[in-house]
Write a protein that binds this DNA or RNA. Sequence first.
DNA 1: TAAACAAATGAGAATCTTTTGCATTGTTGT
DNA 2: ACAACAATGCAAAAGATTCTCATTTGTTTA
Lengths: 141, 141
Amino acid sequence: MDSQFLKKVGLKATLPRIKILEILESGGTARHMSAEDVYKALLEHGEDVGLATVYRVLTQFEQAGILTRHHFEGGQSVFEMDEGRHHDHILCTKCGRVDEFFDPTIEERQKAIADKFGYSMTDHSLYIYGICKDCRKKEKA
Amino acid sequence: MDSQFLKKVGLKATLPRIKILEILESGGTARHMSAEDVYKALLEHGEDVGLATVYRVLTQFEQAGILTRHHFEGGQSVFEMDEGRHHDHILCTKCGRVDEFFDPTIEERQKAIADKFGYSMTDHSLYIYGICKDCRKKEKA
DNA sequence: TAAACAAATGAGAATCTTTTGCATTGTTGT
DNA sequence: ACAACAATGCAAAAGATTCTCATTTGTTTA
């Protein structure tokens, strides 16, 4: 049950938190959702949760390590459930499609670069932008 | 002369544009400036340019390929003069220090990943975050 | 080089995303 | 079930960026 999970990570099992967790887990809309997306999904499910609470809860979940916040191009933050394994993203600038990948060589090089410049690496973000196969097909038509 | 340069890239040589170009070229404050930074620098130089114009001009410069817009963590966009050679960034989350690097291996892997997923890569952004040597030294003290 | 025109600017309003203040409500341990 | 304190909702606020529109400024042309 989600309420057990929430307590485990040190958060009170409140209704808004449980509902938001359900939305994120269901992957209903997509694995990558903005605060607004989550808010709309809640409304569609007939839940009465304020947008401010959505923001607060998402931030708490991020701090609890339950999810990751991304800064894709285009202003707003996008959140994604953390399923353990780290990965980076490649996204289509036409249709917004998102794919995930993990490349050990890149990870390794990043660490090496940080070392070389005297930084202790805490994090990194890598986004590849392009046009996906489907969108290229459409363009030709 | 900057006005010649502006015409060359297809922009009218207006006073605001010339002044903004000077600020960016001088590297006065730093190589990486937000719109607000540029605006403040203009005021300090006694130039009377509106913030809206700064935003407009920076966007135009970006489209003209004169400069690159970055989305570092923390909300606002940061601009940097394009001196031809592409590079990525490593930044200190304590003091804001920014270093630049170029890694052929990473570049190559990115292209390979895009191909593998069927994308035609148009762009990419890579930021490494960490604590720089100086800040680590201070922390120990 | 002055008129003519389109493009650019400045100031402030508007928009969008996210955060905050505060009164009210809900959760948890006892 | 109850007290204590955390969490929520709403509306206001804040920060970044864009837009509107009247006015000014480059550029072009005669």
